[in-house]
């Protein structure tokens, strides 16, 4: 309990610190509305994928296929969207169909991953590595290796529009992140995911249907990737299989930075969201300050190592306190 809260506190302090440095060094540009909007536009794409990986990690798994799922759902949605002039349906309906197609595709990808992990017993890291190749392969075959362009202008609202000055995709992100938080804290599936991730054997002995929990987890993770796909293709008004491949490792990194235990059982939505914010502030700030994207990469790597080393020392401290408490209790009884 304490560890969770203190991890989020660390991230909050880090967020304030990084933001503070940026505001001080860029007093006019950084806090400007334009920069805020820019950050709000960039963050949801990888933020959703990080949440997807957090869910998989809570069950002790990982989802290496998130970017390929975005590619596949993006391509399928793109195929529907790009034909809006030829199929002759109302534009709104076409967009609706495209979104539905993207989410359905993601859903099926999720079932596929979940089945590999739950029923075939393949460790998640290999299962999703394989399906990563497969999904991307299907996407490439569908487009014959090319990209798809030319979407209805109304569709661009998801990746370029604003609602009351707030970027649409940021609002989508906030809603989705809240739902994920609700899932983990208030639903049976969320509770079971956490318990399964803590110890799958005890979970089976507690009457939990482990297979269903796992399949549902990968479906949820895939759906988050599907939503990311819609935002992504809308943002660039095109779709190319493999677009955003950098996001894969980034999403894993953010999930871990956010305090998710890759071994399963622990992770909070708030922590991951805070980690996303820290990275976005750092990223935008460094861009404005004129650092290359490479330096950003370096800074992220440094930050990850810093946080895990910090976590190591903190967990050691907590363990000492816990074990002495346990020892005291045992001798009293």
């Amino acid at each position: 309990m304490n560890t969770k809260r203190s991890n989020n506190l660390t991230l909050l302090v880090l967020f304030v610190l990084v933001s503070g440095v940026m505001v001080v060094s860029l007093p006019t540009i950084f806090p400007s509305l334009r920069n805020m909007q820019n950050m709000g536009r960039q963050l949801p794409e990888y933020g959703l994928l990080a949440l997807a990986n957090m869910l998989a990690m809570i069950t002790g798994g990982i989802d290496l296929s998130v970017v390929s799922i975005t590619s596949l759902s993006g391509v399928l949605a793109g195929l529907v969207l790009s034909s809006y002039q030829t199929i002759g349906l109302p534009t709104d309906l076409t967009i609706g169909i495209a979104i539905a197609v993207a989410l359905c595709a993601a859903f099926l990808c999720g079932i596929f991953n979940g089945a590999l992990v739950a029923f075939a017993g393949v460790p998640a890291i290999i299962a999703t590595l394989g399906s990563n190749g497969l999904f991307l392969g299907v996407a490439v075959v569908l487009t014959k290796g090319a990209g798809i362009i030319g979407f209805p202008p109304a569709f661009l609202f998801f990746g370029n529009g604003n609602v009351l000055g707030i970027p649409t995709q940021f609002l989508i992100f906030v809603v989705v992140a809240s739902l994920v938080g609700l899932l983990l804290n208030k639903t049976t599936q969320g509770f079971r995911m956490v318990m399964y991730g803590t110890n799958p054997l005890v979970s089976r002995f507690s009457g939990i249907n482990n297979e269903m929990v796992v399949v549902k987890t990968y479906i949820l993770s895939a759906l988050l990737s599907g939503i990311a796909a819609i935002i992504m293709i809308s943002g660039v008004n095109s779709v190319r299989p493999g677009y955003g491949s950098d996001y894969l490792l980034l999403s894993v990194l953010i999930a871990v930075m956010g305090g998710t235990d890759p071994a399963g059982g622990f992770g909070t939505t708030l922590g991951v969201v805070l980690a996303i914010f820290v990275l976005q502030v750092l990223q935008s700030g460094l861009v404005i300050l004129g650092f290359s994207p490479f330096f950003r990469k370096s800074a992220f790597g440094f930050l990850l190592l810093l946080i895990v080393v910090f976590q190591f020392y903190r967990s050691r401290y907590f363990q000492l306190r816990l074990s002495s408490a346990a020892a005291r209790e045992k001798l009293q009884v």
């Binding site: 990194l253 330096f295 990469k297 790597g301 190592l305 895990v308 080393v309």
Partner: peptide, 21 residues
């Protein structure tokens, strides 16, 4: 005692980015 996946993910970002910079 950090997970090997996380360490190597972090170091590759750190050094590779630094080199390109």
């Amino acid at each position: 005692n950090i997970s090997t996946l996380i360490v190597t993910l972090g170091t590759s970002g750190l050094f590779y980015g630094a080199m390109l910079q």
